[in-house]
């Protein structure tokens, strides 16, 4: 613990230079994308592109959550990244099997 005390000055300079700015920008973009998805469904429910469009928006938002808010973009997150992408792989397999192979309902 004395080591900590000795390095406290050094630690200050190492303290992550983070501000709320990046997160607030991501938040505003997230809200904007969400609004876009809701408007697309409210005003163009007949369009054949509306489902791919809202799913794409959902994937972008998931990326924001993982890489900006949960810091997967920072160093030392190789295992978490591997874990999450493994999960995504299985989920994609589930969805394909349930809907296209078993034929859905």
């Amino acid at each position: 613990m004395t080591a900590h005390a000795n390095h406290s000055e050094e630690n200050k300079s190492l303290r992550p230079q983070e501000g709320p700015k990046r997160h607030i920008i991501t938040f505003i973009v997230s809200i904007f994308l969400t609004a876009l998805a809701f408007f697309a469904v409210a005003y163009m429910p007949e369009s054949p592109f509306v489902i791919p469009f809202i799913v794409l928006i959902g994937l972008i938002q998931a990326g924001f959550q993982l890489y900006v808010w949960m810091h997967l973009d920072q160093k030392g997150h190789e295992f978490p990244t591997l874990g999450i992408w493994m999960g995504v792989f299985f989920v994609a397999a589930f969805i394909i099997v349930f809907i296209y192979w078993l034929g859905g309902y």
Binding site: G87, V88, F90, V91, F94, I95, G104
Partner: peptide, 19 residues
Amino acid sequence: LGGEVILFGSLFATFIALR
């Protein structure tokens, strides 16, 4: 969380198939 992804993923797959 990796396990949770699988849990929710299987629930999503079920929901999409039965929706």
